[in-house]
Design a binder for these strands. Structure first.
Lengths: 157, 157
DNA sequence: GTCGCTGCAAAGTCTTTGCAGAGAG
DNA sequence: CTCTCTGCAAAGACTTTGCAGCGAC
């Protein structure tokens, strides 16, 4: 019933929930709900990877070739989603950014410089320290990201 | 000659030291020491800011107009310095990367999404946790970066 | 002298934008 | 119906590259 319990540490969000959040967002900002937008959200949801706009575009073309979704729409939708904090982007190394759904549990990243794989992790200790730091400095934190670069277990072999 | 003493927690490095490290690096890789390369290193050293390649290029053109340093050389030198870990780059938000001298004391970043200013900080607690985490996961850390986004004290007014 | 470096301009990437027709509300 | 979206292609922003002459060693 009533409000969704604000569950700190909320775990994986259901797709239905996500979709309905997206629709609310669109309604609120008087934007339209289109097939392309839905497909982009769904593809992001179904991927555990961090995707580049191009990755996303390819995945969509494979799955829904009849839509002939343009790369421009992918960029436009990602920008929209990022503005609304529904996805977050990660930029590092070479050119380009990678996107992931922000609704997933918050986490930081271990990035392997050998194979490019990204491992996620969360550490409460660090999260707490971040709050202490920003509080102490009078900085109003809205988001943060942490990347650790190195060589993953696999590539060390 | 022998290796540079690996001094954990090394504090601000002197320019002379830095320059000589740079020369060793060049010698080791059979590259040449040129005025342009020196000027780029010096400009990075003298700046407390995180510079884009274009910023750097402008600063150099102002200070040494007679060199007519090309932007391509700035890019080439930054790539060289980054490969050798003498500078690190930070990429976020819009397009482009910002560079800073890696020899400076390690630190993380508070980035104001209003004014774009970058504040640096260090937290031993977090540094320690990072090591614990990578150790636990069998990940061989070579570097890391953390950014906290939000609104700085000034912009909250 | 040799061979790498540099500036310039041209070529590449990755992203954004303009436009006319398609489609959601 | 109206007004936003979309795909396409062209335009932009940022980087990289090819080349001929210059300069470090």
């Amino acid at each position: 019933m009533a409000e969704i319990a604000t569950d700190f540490n909320s775990r994986t969000v259901e797709y239905e929930q996500l979709l309905s959040d997206f629709k609310s967002l669109l309604k609120r900002t008087k934007l339209k709900f289109t097939i392309q937008r839905e497909v982009i959200l769904e593809t992001l949801y179904n991927s555990d990877e961090h995707l580049t706009p191009e990755d996303l575009h390819h995945l969509i073309q494979e799955k829904y070739p009849e839509l002939k979704t343009g790369i421009a729409t992918v960029y436009r939708t990602l920008a929209l989603l990022e503005d609304s904090s529904m996805v977050t982007s990660l930029s590092f190394g070479a050119q380009g950014k990678k996107y992931e759904l922000g609704a997933k549990e918050h986490h930081d990243h271990l990035i392997c410089t050998e194979c490019g794989s990204i491992t996620e992790f969360v550490d409460e200790e660090i999260e707490k320290r971040q709050h202490s730091i920003t509080d102490a400095l009078g900085f109003q934190m809205s988001d943060h990201s942490m990347q650790i670069y190195g060589i993953c277990k696999n590539c060390q072999k």
